[in-house]
């Protein structure tokens, strides 16, 4: 009896070792590819375009975004992304990077929401203004630990709402974020699914958004990711910069807090 059990245990551990080795084998060609792609990523081009957009006079007030307060004071870029999302008294709500940029476009430049959000997500041929600005601003926090929030009560409420949203199953396919991002070791086709409730998996992710996506040659942001996830969840479309998008981004950033930001990065 004992011998049979031992035999089974041995077989199980051998299988686990084989699976681990197979996974390691699988990882190494990916790692090489990722390194090669990262060495020549056009991230800098997006950051440059973003800097231009930041300094460009626009809107009825004909001013640039250079006096925009991203949380560290008017015009302070260094470390601003690392402190987001956070509560902004002048808006009375918690905002992520893109929501805050939209706020500045409207308040500083006098642009309408409709005009400023007409084309928030671009494509390979032409990135959007929001995408290049995101690249530029996020790049200014490269190498700094992510420490979202300022201790305001609304930030906690936003986190809690984000958490509720994360587990909320709805729509014709009964999906919640947790349907795909709630269990360890799962993948959708060949894409590994990080468990976004856990710091261990959320950290490497929040450290690398926004990002350049090789498969589409496009630069993508977190607002885009929220939008595209809900599309694939068979839900209607979340409004750009809405509380729902901010709450989810806040939830993930808080789960990842402390990680050193190394973006904007490159993805498959």
């Amino acid at each position: 009896m004992m011998r049979r059990l031992a035999g089974r245990a041995l077989a199980a551990s051998a299988l686990a070792a084989f699976a681990a080795a197979a996974l390691a084998q699988q990882k190494s060609p990916f790692a090489d590819y990722q390194r090669m792609a990262a060495e020549n990523a056009p991230i800098e081009l997006y950051e440059l375009a973003g800097e231009e957009a930041w300094k460009k006079r626009q809107g009825p007030k004909n001013v640039s975004l250079e006096q925009c307060d991203l949380g560290q004071g008017a015009g302070v870029l260094k470390g601003a992304y690392a402190g987001l999302p956070r509560y902004f008294a002048d808006a009375g709500r918690v905002m992520d990077l893109e929501t805050r940029l939209l706020h500045c476009m409207m308040s500083l430049q006098g642009r309408t929401r409709e005009e400023a959000t007409q084309r928030v997500f671009g494509n390979a041929d032409k990135p959007s203004e929001m995408e290049v600005l995101s690249a530029f601003v996020a790049g200014q926090s490269h190498g700094m630990p992510l420490r979202p929030g300022s201790g305001h009560a609304k930030e906690k409420a936003s986190y809690e709402m984000g958490e509720k949203l994360f587990f909320h199953r709805a729509g014709p396919w009964d999906f919640s974020c947790a349907s795909c991002h709630g269990e360890e070791g799962k993948r959708i086709r060949m894409s590994g699914l990080p468990v976004l409730t856990k710091a261990e998996y959320t950290r490497p992710l929040m450290a690398t958004w926004p990002a350049y996506r090789v498969s589409t040659s496009a630069f993508v942001t977190l607002q885009w990711r929220m939008n595209d996830c809900y599309r694939q969840m068979r839900m209607p479309e979340p409004l750009f910069g809405s509380d729902t998008t901010v709450d989810l981004i806040n939830y993930m950033t808080m789960n990842a807090q402390g990680v050193v930001y190394r973006g904007p990065a490159i993805k498959r």
């Binding site: 709402m161 587990f167 468990v195 809900y230 479309e237 809405s242």
Partner: peptide, 27 residues
């Protein structure tokens, strides 16, 4: 944050979330 815990949701929470979704989404 980040410990992987799952909140205990009440019917009221579901109503609150649905109300926010109705406000924040468009067809």
């Amino acid at each position: 944050p980040g410990t992987g815990e799952r909140p205990k949701l009440s019917e009221r929470d579901l109503e609150q979330v649905t109300a926010q979704i109705k406000r924040d989404f468009k067809p």
